[in-house]
Amino acid sequence: MIIEANELSKRYKMPKRKPGIVGGLKNIFHKEYEEIIALDKICFEVKEGELVGYIGPNGAGKSTTIKILSGILTPDSGECRVLGKVPYKERIDYVKDIGVVFGQRTQLWWDLPVIDSFELLKDIYKIPLGDYLKIKKELITWLDLESFINTPVRQLSLGQKMRCELAASLLHSPKILFLDEPTIGLDAISKLSVREFIKKLNKERGVTVILTTHDMDDIESLCNRVIVIGKGKILLDGSLQSLRNTVSKDRRLILDYDGGNGGISILGATPISKENNRLVIDFNPDIITPADLITTLSTQYKIKDILIENPAIEEIIAKLYGEFNI
C-alpha cells in the first residue's frame, strides 16, 4: 500500500463572528469558537499505480485530507502512512518524494520565464544535473511547453500555466502526485490535454495520482476508482460503475422520431422529456431490457435515431449527495 489512512480525524475551531460594530468589538475581547469536524475517522488505502478520484461538495473535507496526506497538517487523531512515512512527522524527508498541484495557486515565479522556476526547483529538490536535463526535456515534449518556456509566467494563458505547473511538480520524479482541482477554469482543449497527460503519466510512469475535482468529466475520463466524501465521512469507495449501481442503475434512452404519438406507460421506464420530436426516457435494465423497450416504442413512434447512454455522472453525484443529505 502506498497510502494508508487509518481513522484520521480533524477538527477546526472557527471564531464565531458577531454581526455589527458592537459585535466586532465584543469579538476583540471575547472570542467564541465553534467547532467544525472536518474529518471524522477517515479510513482508506491506495495501491501503487492507482488513479483515484477524491470528490465531495465544498467543505466536505477534501482539502483537509490532501493537506494531511501531503504533510502540511497534523491530524488530531488517527494515523497515516504514505510511502512508508508519516507525512507530518518527517516533513522534509517526506515531501521530496511527492508532487502537489493546486489548481488555484501557482508555484511559478510570476515575473520570470518558466524555465527559471524550473532551474530554482532543480536546486530546491537537489536534482542531479543529468536527471534534471533528461526529465525536463521529457516534460517539455509531453506537455508541449517548448513555444513558451522562455516567456514570463505572467504572460501565459491559464491553460499554459497549468501545463507548466504540472511540469514543475514533476521535475523531481515524485512517486505520488496530488492534484487539487487541476482543470479548474481551463478551456475545453486545455482540459483535454491536461487529462491526456495525467493519464499518460499514470500509465507509462506508474505515478500514483490522487485527484480532487468538481468536474465529473475529469473523473469519468481518468479515474478507475472514486472516493466520495461528505461531512467528513467517506460515503463511498469503489469503481465508477459501482458508484452508478449504488445510486441508480438507470440508463438513458434518447429517441428521435418523425411522427407518431402515444402516452408512455411502460413498467421500469420513466419519461424525462418529450419535445421537438425527441423523447428522453430513463429505464432500469433489470426490469425492462433495452430491446423490449425499443420494440414497444417502435409500435408508437416512427423512429429516426436511437441512443442509449449512462446518465451523466454529475446527476449521479447530485443524487448521492441528496441521499446523504449533504
Binding site: G71, I72, I92, V95, V100, F102, I124, K126
Partner: peptide
C-alpha cells in the same frame, strides 16, 4: 493568506530559507 506558505511546507527545505 494566499496559501503560499503551504507551498513552502511542501518543499524539502527549511521554511526560514524559503
Amino acid at each position: 493568506r494566499l496559501g503560499d506558505f503551504d507551498r513552502i511546507l511542501l518543499r524539502p527545505r527549511t521554511t526560514v530559507l524559503q
